[in-house]
Write a protein that binds this DNA or RNA. Structure first.
Length: 175
DNA sequence: TTGGCGATTGGCT
DNA sequence: GCCAATCGCCAAT
């Protein structure tokens, strides 16, 4: 997903955001929302690869994931940070101002900037159309890895992925 | 029915 | 760097 482009069609022209950081939550991962089985909340993690899973956390933030396994298997990739390609003014408005480097740095900020909430849970991101979808794109640099961020259990193994050298990546500056 | 807690953020020191 | 805000989820009662 690093380098791929999120297309949000809420506004005209479209909002375009390039993904620069992700985290994997594969099957049988103690840190995954799917670890204890399917529930109403995590249902979308069990959909086909490329469907969205959106959840609400800490009473304040939404997080966008992409389902990453075959139907019936719960797994997803969290989108943690992005770079604005188009629609910066609208994205800044949705975020309550342009915070510069922090505009889409962090999963909750990225969702706020693209007006992503539970209404977008469980939709197909690979249709090439719709309210939110993924367009092709490539990483501009080598992809680095590190332990995952903010987990109280199982931050290892190093299932965080980011475009090396990109200043828009969240957390402490990784190498 | 309940209460402990989280894949976060923003403000303050 | 530390911590409170805030609320939906779900395991346990």
């Amino acid at each position: 997903l690093i380098g791929k482009i999120l297309v949000r069609t809420i506004a005209s022209p479209e909002l375009l955001v390039r993904i620069v950081e992700t985290e994997a939550y594969p099957p049988n991962d103690p840190a995954s929302h799917a670890f204890r089985g399917e529930t109403a909340r995590n249902r979308a993690m069990y959909l086909e690869r490329g469907f969205s899973y959106v959840y609400f956390i800490y009473g304040t933030a939404y997080c966008l994931n992409v389902a990453s396994e075959t139907p019936g298997v719960g797994a997803a990739v969290l989108v943690r940070a992005g770079e604005v390609l188009a629609g910066r003014d609208e994205i800044a408005r949705l975020r309550g101002g342009d915070s510069g480097r922090d505009l889409l740095r962090g999963p909750g900020r990225l969702c706020a900037g693209l007006a992503v909430d539970r209404a977008l849970d469980g939709i197909d991101l690979c249709r090439g159309s719709g309210p939110l979808w993924l367009a092709s794109g490539e990483a501009r640099a080598e992809i680095g890895t590190s332990p995952r961020i903010g987990l109280t259990r199982a931050p290892e193994p190093a299932w965080r992925f980011f475009e090396r050298g990109n200043p828009l990546v969240s957390g402490r500056r990784p190498s």
